[in-house]
Amino acid sequence: MIRHLRACLVLLCQLPTVVTAQSPVPLTVEAALDREVVAPLLEAFERAHPDIALTYHDRSTLQVNQRARTANPAPDVVISSAMPWQMARVNEGLSQPLDSKTARNWPAWAKWRNEVFGFTFEPIVTVYRLDLARHMVPPSTHADMHSLLRTHQNLLRGRVTTYSPSASGIGLMLFQQDARYSPRFWDLVAAMGAADVSLENNTQAMLDGLTDGTYWLGYNLLGSYALLWARSHPELIVQIPQDYALVMMRMAFVHRDAPNAEAAKIFMDFLLGADGQRVLASDTPLFSVLPEVTGPYTAQRLRDQIGERLYPIPINASLLAFDDPLRRKLFMKRWSREINILGP
């Protein structure tokens, strides 16, 4: 009898635990994607899934890469703009496949192995101050930029900024892509070197420099950040190069050792689904990849405007070449040689 009573008591004591089991499931997202930019998407997700407690860490690409490799417990979802690194982690087997209808419907050119998905479509842009336009015809192509740097070398000296390939994964990747498409890129590098180019670590630093007038011309900025910034800074003009415009895609994958794989998959489904992409298209400058989604920021609309000159960095195994240590080393060696070749 006493034993029965005790069993009942134990059962009663356990009841609250059962209730707490229905409390929100944690979900950790490690992302190299500014929180301010992506906030509407995160809010929409939290509204749609109140049962998931989302923890969003906004870090640098380097940190995200590091955490994906070594963090214990592993993050649930890894988002980064360092495409070669993301690809290398997936190739290492750090991801798990996403087997949902949304994932299957995702355009084949924007995913790899159904494990990693490029979910944004961010053009790489040139940003200049109106000051520049007062002295010269603003550049609309890479060739324009090259000739501008040659012809207005003195005027532009110290007023040009771009990514530092040694300090930024995105910067290195973008320059590698540039070099891949045209050997004349190295002339541009040499010209920028001659103009005493300032190398910054991220787009925001370049935007800040442009805003305060330190720089007149910024090369290879992330269009998503630049467009958002330019809305509140009318003195800056965002130019999508007219000869060819690189397009960067944030890549997201569910970590192989994700402690909350189910929640992670729900997050991915939201991210890749019509709801998430609609938020991207209308409330963020990240551009939606899905062709059926409408809004001011969609890949489709960008294509309609820029046409065939958009060059999305392909999400396939060739990305791994840009993570090859020797190739990186050789690129940096050439960069250092070219940037100093004309002398400051």
């Binding site: 195994a317 990305l319 791994l320 070449a321 840009f322």
Partner: peptide, 12 residues
């Protein structure tokens, strides 16, 4: 030294 060709990975 080798500048690993991106195409090699595509083939692989």
């Amino acid at each position: 030294v080798v500048e690993i060709p991106a195409a090699a990975f595509q083939i692989l």
